[in-house]
């Protein structure tokens, strides 16, 4: 080491760059994992919203033509996502399976009514609009009863909102922490080069000329850090998928593009601007005050 101080100096400079990149990569990794959660929470809430069912029970003596007309009417409504006709026999079969007992045999007749199973479009899942939809359906002559569970709907709605706010708050906080951490790491690196910056100024280099290589390095380090972060995220997602296969879809390309775009963009922007501000600070500093 003492025999070759040049190598030692280079090694030290490189290790400081490596520390910067690793620090940034970890912060970006946290941000990325968090974004996965946020993106998936959206998907989960959409899944729940799209699976809110309203059961429309039909009058017992309904003719086939009336049934078809009612179904067409409901299909044409804006709040309908899809409809599914469940006949008397089908619901009896379903219920027998659920009960584990053939109650039709036992009773001697089938007491169940045929129904239309209606999935509500996500935009109409608010409890108030569900109430209106139920009233609207009940008014029709072919309908005997409309069933849905307003409490479940209300609960889901409230929880989705709460989780959304909490996630958003956490994202904002995490982003702030990320910026602060990366900014601090970079400022330390530039601080250690303040004398070099001063010397460059004394030789007659313009501020732009001094800044450029620093900013290029900052951007490259940001890119490298986000690349490492993306690899880590992919690793984690792969592991999670082994355990919980339904957690997310690997072929959800748009999500991945969004996620990796976000991570690399944040990496480059935060790193680039932190470098710019840190270098500017010493470019403008009074030379007597940097010691």
């Amino acid at each position: 080491m003492a025999a070759n101080p040049e190598k030692y100096a280079k090694k030290r400079a490189r290790s400081s760059a490596i520390t910067t990149v690793i620090g940034m990569a970890l912060v970006l990794f946290m941000l990325g994992i968090f974004s996965v959660l946020v993106l998936n929470a959206q998907k989960l809430s959409r899944y729940v919203m799209e699976n809110i069912h309203v059961q429309v029970f039909l009058k017992a003596d309904l003719k086939d033509a009336d049934l078809q007309r009612l179904r067409k009417e409901i299909d044409a409504e804006p709040f309908t996502l899809s409809t599914n006709f469940v006949s008397k026999e089908e619901s009896a079969k379903q219920l027998s399976e659920d009960l584990g007992e053939d109650f039709v045999d036992f009773l001697g007749f089938n007491p169940l009514e045929a129904s239309i199973d209606l999935r509500i479009a996500p935009a109409y899942t608010h409890p108030d609009s569900l109430e209106q939809i139920a009233a609207n359906l009940e008014d029709r002559s072919q309908v005997s009863e409309v069933a849905y569970s307003p409490n479940l709907v209300r609960q889901i709605n409230e929880n989705v909102n709460k989780i959304g706010v909490v996630l958003l708050g956490f994202s904002a906080l995490l982003l702030l922490v990320a910026i602060a951490l990366i900014n601090n790491t970079i400022r330390l690196t530039i601080y250690s080069k303040r004398f070099i910056i001063k010397t460059m100024q004394l030789v007659g280099a313009t501020s732009g000329f001094i800044q450029r290589p620093f900013i290029m390095t900052g951007i490259m380090q940001g890119l490298l850090a986000s690349f490492i972060a993306i690899l880590l995220i992919l690793g984690i997602l792969y592991t999670v998928r082994q355990e919980i296969p339904d957690f997310f879809e690997f072929n959800d390309l748009i999500m991945f593009v969004k996620l990796f775009g976000l991570v690399s963009l944040l990496g480059v922007i935060i790193s680039g601007f932190s470098t710019l501000f840190a270098v500017r600070r010493y470019l403008r500093a009074d030379p007597n005050k940097i010691y």
């Binding site: 100096a9 400079a13 004398f195 010397t199 460059m200 004394l202 030789v203 007659g204 280099a205």
Partner: peptide
């Protein structure tokens, strides 16, 4: 006031 992170030639090169 030489740049300590590069050799003599590169110091002059930078200038």
């Amino acid at each position: 006031e030489l740049l300590p992170d590069r050799n003599v030639h590169d110091n002059l090169w930078f200038a």
